[in-house]
C-alpha cells in the first residue's frame, strides 16, 4: 500500500476508479430507479474528481472548466430522468425497473 500511493496522482486515479466501479456495479445490480440515478451521479462525480486532479497535475485550467460543464449537464440530465420517473410512477405505481418488462426480444 505504501508503494501504491507514493505518487499522489496514482492515489486519485485509484480512488476515482473505485468510485466509478461502485457506480457501474450499482447501475447493474440495483432495481430501484432512484438508486440507479444516484449511481449515475456517483460515476460522474468520480470523473469530476479525476478531472480536477489531472487539471492540477498538468497546471491547466481546462480540466476544471470541463468539470463545470459536466455538473451543468448532469443536473439537466437528472431533471429529465426524474420527470421520466414521475411519468412511470403515475402509470405503474412503482419505482422499480422490474415493473417495466413489456419490450423483449
Amino acid at each position: 500500500m505504501e508503494n501504491l500511493f507514493s505518487n499522489t496522482l496514482d492515489g486519485y486515479l485509484f480512488l476515482a476508479s473505485l468510485l466509478f466501479a461502485i457506480g457501474v456495479l450499482g447501475i447493474l445490480i440495483r432495481r430501484n430507479i432512484i438508486i440507479i440515478f444516484m449511481c449515475v451521479e456517483l460515476m460522474l462525480s468520480a470523473v469530476n474528481l479525476l478531472l480536477t486532479a489531472f487539471s492540477v497535475h498538468h497546471n491547466d485550467p481546462n480540466g476544471q472548466v470541463f468539470v463545470f460543464f459536466i455538473m451543468a449537464v448532469a443536473a439537466a440530465e437528472i431533471t429529465i430522468g426524474l420527470a421520466i420517473l414521475v411519468m412511470i410512477y403515475r402509470n405503474t405505481g412503482s419505482v422499480s425497473i422490474d415493473s417495466l418488462k413489456k419490450l423483449k426480444w
Binding site: 466509478f20 457501474v24 440507479i36 440530465e77 429529465i80 421520466i84 412511470i88 405503474t92 417495466l100 413489456k102
Partner: peptide
C-alpha cells in the same frame, strides 16, 4: 415509458 427510461439509463451510463 419503458423505451424512454431504458434510453435514459443507457444514455447516462454511456455518458459516464
Amino acid at each position: 415509458n419503458e423505451s424512454s427510461l431504458k434510453y435514459f439509463l443507457m444514455g447516462s451510463f454511456t455518458t459516464g
